[in-house]
Amino acid sequence: MTAQVGRTGRVRPRGNRRELAIWFLMRLSGLGLFVLVLTHYLILHVFHDPAEQDAAWIATFRWSSTFWRVFDWSMLMLVMFHAFMGMRIVVGDMTFGRVRTGLTWALYALAIFLIVIGTIVVVTLPNVVPAA
């Protein structure tokens, strides 16, 4: 049996289906975010000046299209999984015992909170029709 020695990523977990699934999903969500986040930064920080993007701009232009709401919500979901599973690995590397368990649950609670408020604003922000 050859060990998969990573110079980079985490060694692929063995014998635990849940950890293996997370390992794969971490990479898949990373590939999705490669496209979504770089597109997001390119449009909102390079093509448009962020200084102009006040609340009215978002309601009138950015989220006047269902496509961008779906885009941003998909990015939110992938980011929440990827960022919080990544932080779970950091916590797992740096702590143990009760501290690890407590911090891991705190991470999950924060993730759920952010998913809820992020989803609320994507779904409920009124769509302002730009004045002609």
Partner: peptide, 25 residues
């Protein structure tokens, strides 16, 4: 990664404020 995680927390909250408190945003 940790730096981006910190920013994402801030960013989800600030975008929530676009709906909840546009002036604060």
């Amino acid at each position: 990664g940790v730096a981006i995680w910190l920013f994402v927390i801030l960013h989800v909250i600030d975008i929530f404020l676009v709906g909840a408190a546009p002036d604060v945003y």
